[in-house]
Design a protein around this nucleic acid. Structure first.
Lengths: 240, 240
DNA sequence: CTTTAGCACCCCCAAATGTGGGTATCGGTA
DNA sequence: TACCGATACCCACATTTGGGGGTGCTAAAG
């Protein structure tokens, strides 16, 4: 947009490249952009024995702890929207339930600011994450700022996500690339639909459906549909 | 064991009955038993869009936040053991990795005590949870104490778990009761095994395997095996 | 004491699936 | 340019599964 904007982006960008983990990176972004808080939240890891969210934030401990122990993630309208939407949004735009208003009040009491901007991230294997900035900047200034920085923030979000995936899984990402059609077929198979029904629903021939399910099965390294469905659900390629 | 022990249990027990949520209950248990900290941790909820652990603890915010943001749950030897073992154990008994020692040092720095006792909980539908006490009491006193209270602590753990399940799912628990044999068959089916193979592995006739998978399928309200496997994985009846 | 629930076993057959081959187009990358 | 992966389609056959019907035992719950 202009030189100032380019500068903050460039320094944040460099910082991410230097950062060894997401925790460092978000602090660098916070400093570069001069916002109150920065958060990166991966929707889900491929967990074994227990639920384990991947969250890195500059919010104060008291708020993080409170958020976790109150199960606020179920109520938080930013998270709700962020893991459904495709495009970035300002927090002011989201619709608030009563519970969300309570949460917002609580958040203010714990040192969070009113305005925010969140970038939903969806990677090639369908994993979702949310990259959020929180600021006490006045409405107009903030809106002007994010509209100018939208592309940069998207870029930063994706970088952050790559860093996070590396931090969680290391070199080798366990999720194979399943094509959208393959995913759809798999999802419908997981809902108990038969080949013929899936074909009708997706407006394909039964043969094609078979071919998709076969290739999905092979990519998942499975010998039959039940196994493939199980693995797809475990890897959260499909959500049911 | 003796009157003093009975008294603390009785008051904790009453407090749980009065408690409206797990957060209240653990504080009551902490007070009744005079320990430093009390924690309840459900291994996993049936999540939709994101990972969401159910944890209620009296640990300080700084530790909760640090634990979450460092992904300590992957390292914590108490959690590792607790979600695998069947029987209660003292923290002193668990084997420490290097990473675990780092965590322990960090924990001490954040106000946690050295000694602890954890009760693994496994409910009728196979869900796991961990109920832990943390204390700065001296080794011998603590060991004497928990050995006398083992049964009571087990009872409290299960009460807490019932409270937690109610808090999460309300009146209706979404997980149907799948028998152990049914679960085994389902698990093997989810691994891509055929009826005949499952029969061999479980030393059953193929017909019996079919019967188990059929009843599991019906309990899960599914029309075929892929759907049943998908649902079982989602509901974490089987873990793959 | 009866009922219920889980476990173990058996049979049949129409329908669905797995498994092996194919063809062809399109867009991106090497 | 040539190659690759994803998309979309097609065929045939042996094997597996679903869904229907059963029997009988044991152990816990009413």
């Amino acid at each position: 947009m202009n030189d100032k904007h380019h500068d903050v982006f460039a320094s944040a960008f460099e910082a991410i490249k230097r950062a060894r983990d997401v925790a460092q990176a978000i602090v660098a972004i916070k400093d570069a952009y001069g916002v109150d808080h920065v958060t990166y939240h991966m929707a889900h890891m491929i967990s074994g024995n227990y639920d384990q969210p991947f969250v890195r934030t500059t919010y104060p401990d008291s708020w993080v702890s409170r958020y976790l122990q109150h199960g606020y993630v179920k109520v938080d309208p930013v998270v709700q929207e962020g893991f459904v939407r495709q495009l970035p949004f300002e927090w002011r735009e989201v619709t608030m339930t009563d519970a969300a208003l309570v949460l917002m009040q609580d958040a203010l009491a714990h040192g969070l600011a009113m305005n925010g901007y969140s970038v939903p991230i969806v990677d090639k294997v369908g994993r979702r994450a949310l990259f959020s900035l929180n600021t006490s900047m006045a409405d107009e200034d903030w809106t002007a700022f994010v509209s100018g920085e939208a592309e940069h923030l998207s870029e930063l979000g994706h970088r952050l996500h790559r860093l996070a995936v590396f931090e969680v899984y290391g070199e080798h990402d366990p999720v194979p690339r399943i094509g959208p059609r393959e995913r759809e077929c798999l999802a419908l198979a997981a809902q108990g639909k038969e080949y013929t029904v899936i074909a009708q629903l997706l407006d394909l021939s039964e043969h094609t459906v078979r071919a998709y399910l076969k290739s999905a099965r092979l990519k998942l390294d499975c010998s039959n549909i039940p196994q493939a469905v199980g693995k797809a659900v475990k890897l959260r390629i499909i959500s049911l």
